[in-house]
Each structure stands twice: as C-alpha cells, then as structure tokens.
Design a protein around this nucleic acid. Structure first.
Ligand SMILES: [Zn+2]
Ligand SMILES: [Zn+2]
Ligand SMILES: [Zn+2]
Ligand SMILES: [Zn+2]
Lengths: 141, 141
DNA sequence: AGAATCCTTGGAGTCACTACAGGGTCAAGC
DNA sequence: GCTTGACCCTGTAGTGACTCCAAGGATTCT
C-alpha cells in the first residue's frame, strides 16, 4: 500500500502520516525501488488506533504509551487506566472552564443593547472598567 | 514603572509583556538611559484590558481589534458585538465537543474493571477493536 | 568587592499538525 | 517520443500564545 492509498483508506492526511512517522508513532515502512513508502495491514491498524485515540483528544505522548501496551500484552494495565483517567480529568477541567466562560461571555454580551457608538457600548465599558480594577459583569462572582 | 514592577502589579509574566510588545498589542514604552523599558499608567490599563480579554479566551487578534475601539470611541460598536458573538460560538462549540468527549471517555473507562494484564484490559480491547473497524463503546452513537 | 537581582536581545521549544518549495517517478494519451 | 497530470520525496516554515534559555549589561545589597 502506498501512502496515498493508506491516506484514503484511513481518512488521514498524507502529511499527517509522514508526521507520525517522524514523531515515531508509526514505524518507518519499507521502501520500494523508487523510494516510495509501502505500508502493510499492520500499519493501517496502527494508524487507525492512533486516530481513534486522537478522536478522544488523547495527546500523542499518551498514545505512544498506549501503543507499547498493544505490543506487550502481558504487562499490567494500571498505566492504561491512569492515562484514561488523566485524559478524563483534563476534559472535565476544560469542560468546567468552558462552562464558566460561556456564562461570562453571555453576561458580557447582554451589556450591549442595539447599535450605538463604541463609547456607549456596554461591552467595551465593562472590559475597560475591569481593566481599571472595577467590578465587571462577566467576573462578578 | 519598570517591566518587573508592571509584571508584579498585573500578575503578567515579564516575558509575556515583552511578547505583547513584539506582537504589537502593547505600544513600545519609553526607555530610560540604561535601555530599560519605562511604563506609564496607560500601559498598565491596556495590559489589564488585554488580560481580561484573555481570561475570556478571546484570541489576541480579536483583542487587537477591541483595542482599536477603545482608541476610537466614536465608531460603531457592531464589530464588538460580532467579536463577542464569535467567541461565544467558539466556546459553545468546544463545550459541546468536550461534553461528547467526557461521555466517550467515561464509557471507555468503564471497560476496565480492576487490575489485570493489558491483553485482558477492556480499554485496550476497545481501542484495538475500533482500529479494526469494529464498534467501540466510546463511539457507538 | 562580590553576590544577588534585575534588565536587555535573540533564538529555540511547546503541540499537532498544515502548507509550501523544489524536486523525482510513473502511467496514459497524443 | 513527448507532454500532462497524478502521485511521491525531502526539508523547512508557519500556526497561537506563550515559555524557557543563553549570554551579557545594570543596579542594588551586604
Ligand atoms: Zn454595543
Ligand atoms: Zn470580567
Ligand atoms: Zn484494565
Ligand atoms: Zn471509540
């Protein structure tokens, strides 16, 4: 399988596949006489594994760790759990901060009521007031 | 005010302040005889404004646009609204995808029940199964 | 005088790609 | 035989918003 075929089969961009190779996530494939990369079914599965992990927003460093477990099935799965737990914690932390952000932005957005000059815009007013150390509608509690 | 004092007054790292200057968000301050930057109260407020926007995760390019409105108060505030709306939309999009991610990761996490070998770990099983094109617990709907 | 702290510039590193630039290879069509 | 177009190669630079470091100059404390 050439790189373009692998790309089509997995939906992963050609440049991304080469990037994974350089980043040591995908082992360097054999080369044909003209220097083209030739992939096997094993490469395809490994790439699919990586993309599935990335769909869960797992960092590549953690994906690399997970791949070592695929290769050594007899080792204990404790670290796998840890990696997923860490990812879950990260997602939850971001979820919470995104929630707070949404509230703050909605409050801020509500300060502008229709078209007027920037000098009279409640949004700008609030942002400037906060920069002066005064209370802002978005961060008041 | 020297850069260290400004840093302490605002809680913004010295390197970040210099970065904002290079990125043209903060105008270049006067220099004293020894070449040290000397900031005014106006700089402090501008920096606080930037940080407040950043607390709302507004991209620096958008912060730059907002700053032009601070400087020209007679212009119409329509673009201000647009910028905040765009930010709100971005936050909501990320919120939705973080929600989905949390569900997926919880489902995946539930596959591992106690300590065992990687070969028997439900998490790894699921990830590998998905790479084979089979259904995975995290993305099944 | 010497040490600690501050300031300067410039460049490299982060993450996970993405986008070239400048070339080589190969099959089909004329 | 030649051109066209689709592929492939390497290597480098860019993204956003910082963060870290090296190598040196200035100031301040003891
Ligand atoms: Zn307005
Ligand atoms: Zn606020
Ligand atoms: Zn397990
Ligand atoms: Zn899945």
């Amino acid at each position: 399988m050439r790189i373009g075929e692998l790309s089509k089969a997995t939906g992963v961009d050609v440049e991304t596949i080469r990037y994974y190779e350089k980043a040591q996530l995908l082992s360097a494939p054999a080369r044909s006489d003209n220097g083209y990369r030739t992939y096997t079914q094993a490469h395809l599965e490994r790439l699919a594994f990586i993309r599935h992990c990335r769909a869960l927003d797992i960092p590549l460093a953690a994906v690399q760790r997970l791949l070592t477990f695929v290769d050594s099935p007899q080792s204990d799965c404790g670290e796998i759990d840890q990696l997923i737990d860490a990812q879950l914690a990260r997602v939850r932390a971001r979820l919470a901060s995104m929630h707070a952000l949404e509230r703050q932005l909605m409050a801020l957005r509500g300060q502008c009521t229709g078209p007027h000059s920037a000098a009279e815009c409640g949004i700008l007013h609030d942002l400037v007031a906060a920069a002066h150390g005064e209370a802002c509608v978005c961060h008041q509690n």
